[in-house]
């Protein structure tokens, strides 16, 4: 069996939404260089809708694929819906990730939440902090 599913390899080799959005409405970054993965997500938001999303990722194949898939899943969606995107949904959309790579999908979920939080903060929008925390699925090693 191959290390990754065909879908992971497709998103890794042909990542969607790579790049930067100048003057983005929200930018979120998670992970750290020591752990070997950093994910940064840029959002363009109009009337509560994510009209554009881009990412930059330093990391392994599954980190890049998770970023690509997650950005595709939230593009054109309301912010409220993007916040509901779980790491499991990202991993499932990729036809699964090896167990020790699941934290890459967690990073994608966290990066989106971090970008939305940035958007809320910049615009003085009140929010429920629980909605923006990744709860028990939080990556244990990258937040140190």
């Amino acid at each position: 069996m191959a290390l990754y599913s065909e879908k992971v390899m497709d998103h890794f080799k042909n990542p969607r939404n790579v790049g930067v959005i100048e003057n983005a409405d929200g930018v979120g970054e998670v992970g750290n260089a020591k752990c070997g993965d950093i994910m940064r997500i840029y959002l363009k938001i109009d009337n509560g809708i994510i009209t554009d999303v881009k990412f930059e990722t330093f990391g392994c194949g599954s980190a890049i694929a998770s970023s690509s898939m997650a950005t595709e899943m939230i593009k054109g969606k309301p912010v409220s819906e993007a916040l509901k995107l779980s790491n499991k949904a990202v991993a499932e959309a990729l036809d699964g990730l090896p167990a020790y790579k699941m934290h890459c999908s967690v990073l994608a979920e966290e990066a989106i939440k971090s970008a939305v939080k940035d958007y809320y903060d910049k615009n003085g929008i009140a929010y429920d902090p629980c909605e923006l925390s990744c709860g028990e699925t939080c990556c244990p090693h990258c937040n140190g």
Binding site: F12, K13, D37, F58, G59, C60
Partner: peptide
């Protein structure tokens, strides 16, 4: 500097 080894290996394999 600035890259991660596994993604490098996978792309080199390609």
């Amino acid at each position: 500097e600035g890259i991660e080894g596994e993604s490098l290996l996978l792309l080199l394999d390609e």
